[in-house]
Amino acid sequence: MSHFKQQNMATMAVAMSGLIWGILWIPLRALNAAGIDGLWTTVVFYAFPAALLAPLYVFRWRHLIQGGLSLHLPSLLAGLGLVLYAEALLYTQVINAMLLYYLTPLWSTLLARYLLGERIFLDRWISMILAFAGILIIFKIDTGIPLPKNIGDWMGFASGIVWAFAAVYMKKSGKQNTMDVTLCYFLWGSISALILTQLPMEEAQQPPTLAQLHDVLGWLIPVVVILIIPPAIAILWGASVLSPGILGILFMTEISTGSISAAMWANEPFGLREILGITFISLAGLWEPLRGSLGANKRVENRHT
């Protein structure tokens, strides 16, 4: 497969995965509503996919050990980053968690510049300006600087920085077996979520009972099999192909489905401001892929003339 086709496939995979993950706050909050306490919700959310993938851990254990730091460090960072993001979705408004997390294209682009030596071209700056314009419109910049205000906001902010490091190290470590990265991602995500249950939160943080877990299995299994594992594989593969900055911008498609679904089912605000913000964010995600496609088409035309 040509590099251009691979980049196009990765672009589509990441953008579609972002759209799907925009509704993951729903099963997260459903677990919480089922009586599984706060931070333990995220433990279940990560440990359950890991449990379903158990046969692959047995089959691939030698590869997972041989992968060493270049496999496990970016997987650990990715797991921790998205665990923090999942917990932000529980402890603040869905749209706040998303917008603070999606400062990640800025961190990713800057880290890629200084750790990978990637040049920052004009198209990337345009994408980031469009993306942040959308974020600031939704976040009501006219009412003041949108600083984090609670533990959920801070988790969302931290998750974007941690994920930026993960994306850069995935790109830096070169090609890894995508299934091995996925297995390590869910493993380290589960461990990170378990460690974070020790945070001194005000509310009770009791481990779920077997009865509580049994009650949610009926709907959790299809959610994991359809909405969690396949997009995770697509995103982790995309991270090895795409620039960390464009990866973060493409993944912003999550904001669109997230803000619309939160308005529909969580009574969060959605009006002209949100529509305008989503439009800018969508343009940011499309800008570089479209420019790259047009450039490739022009090169093909020039070769034929």
Rank of each mutant, 00 (worst) to 15 (best):
I246C: 11
L294N: 09
K175I: 04
G134A: 03
G160Y: 04
W219T: 10
A131F: 11
I275M: 15
L71C: 01
P148C: 03
V168P: 03
F165I: 01
V162M: 06
S243I: 06
I281L: 08
P269M: 07
I126E: 05
N302E: 14
P208K: 02
L52N: 04
T305N: 11
A78M: 08
P231M: 03
V241M: 03
K171Y: 09
V168N: 05
V58T: 01
N150V: 02
W219K: 07
A234M: 14
I246G: 05
M179G: 00
R273K: 12
G156A: 06
A234R: 00
D123V: 03
I191P: 06
G271Y: 07
A164Y: 12
R299P: 05
P208N: 04
S190L: 14
K140W: 01
F186S: 08
E274F: 04
A204F: 09
N32R: 12
N96G: 04
A88Q: 10
L122C: 10
W237I: 02
T305A: 12
I246Q: 14
L236W: 03
G238T: 08
L19F: 14
L64R: 01
L199N: 02
F251D: 15
G238L: 06
I229Q: 11
P207M: 02
D215A: 15
T253M: 15
T209V: 08
I249K: 06
T42S: 13
W25S: 10
M9R: 13
V14S: 12
S108M: 08
E202V: 12
Q205S: 09
A50I: 03
A232N: 13
I20A: 14
T279P: 02
W287L: 10
I20Q: 09
A234G: 03
L100E: 05
H72Q: 07
E118A: 06
E118D: 13
R124M: 13
D180G: 00
A30V: 09
V225D: 01
P74E: 01
H214K: 09
I129H: 13
A263I: 04
R291E: 03
Y85S: 07
M98H: 15
P148S: 06
G38W: 01
I161S: 13
I249N: 05
A234H: 05
K140S: 15
L106D: 05
A158T: 08
L71A: 02
S256E: 07
Q66H: 14
L53N: 05
A88I: 06
L196T: 00
S159V: 10
L64F: 02
L217M: 13
P289E: 04
L100S: 06
I281A: 07
W125C: 14
M16Q: 03
I260W: 07
P200H: 00
P148Y: 04
G35A: 01
A33P: 08
I275G: 03
L56D: 08
Y46D: 02
I255R: 08
V224H: 06
P200T: 00
K149S: 12
W125G: 11
L199G: 00
S17P: 13
S243F: 05
L19V: 10
R60V: 00
M170Q: 14
Y169G: 01
P269G: 11
G144N: 02
L290C: 12
W21C: 04
S159E: 08
L52A: 01
L217S: 10
W61G: 00
A262K: 05
I23M: 03
L122Q: 11
K298C: 15
L136T: 09
